[in-house]
């Protein structure tokens, strides 16, 4: 059977979630592999959320926020960017391919970009194959 990855996405309420809604109202089609979780700001994305997603079997995690300078809360997206860099290092050490975690700026008007992002990310994750971390963790019984 074809590998159908599950991607957990954290979208900020003001830009990216609205952008994703716009993709819907514009009836753009994209791959059905993404599961969106809404947060008020990309700055709210706690590293735990990302690790938890991988731990529960997500094949990819996506974080979207407002473009730099456009944050509804002034600079939450910058904080998110810093954390993202650290998380990348961390998951690599855990044995998760860094490409499984992705950060992208999506504004409220970028429905098209959101749809394209989901398609490209799904394709990337498909190439990587299923994430093994859940099985690893369970075998080690951590």
């Amino acid at each position: 059977m074809e590998f159908n990855p599950t991607i957990v996405a954290f979208l900020c309420n003001w830009c990216s979630y609205t952008g994703a809604d716009l993709a819907g109202t514009s009836r753009m089609k994209y791959k059905p592999n993404v599961r969106v979780i809404r947060v008020m700001c990309s700055g709210r994305v706690d590293p735990t959320f990302v690790y938890k997603s991988f731990r529960e079997g997500a094949d990819g995690v996506l974080i979207c926020g407002c473009h730099p300078g456009d944050c509804h809360y002034q600079e939450g997206n910058y904080k998110c960017l810093r954390r993202f860099k650290l998380m990348k290092k961390y998951i690599t050490q855990m044995g998760i391919e860094p490409a499984r975690l992705h950060l992208e700026w999506i504004s409220a008007s970028e429905g098209k970009q959101f749809a394209e992002l989901i398609d490209s990310m799904t394709a990337r994750i498909k190439e990587l194959g299923p994430s093994k971390i859940k099985t690893v963790v369970e075998t080690l019984a951590i």
């Binding site: 599961r35 979780i37 709210r44 706690d46 735990t48 959320f49 938890k52 997603s53 529960e56 079997g57």
Partner: peptide, 17 residues
């Protein structure tokens, strides 16, 4: 938007998946 709420949302949807 507590940790617990979001973590259990992840939990819920991943388990169902």
């Amino acid at each position: 938007f507590t940790d617990q709420q979001i973590l259990s949302q992840i939990d819920g949807l991943m388990k169902m998946a």
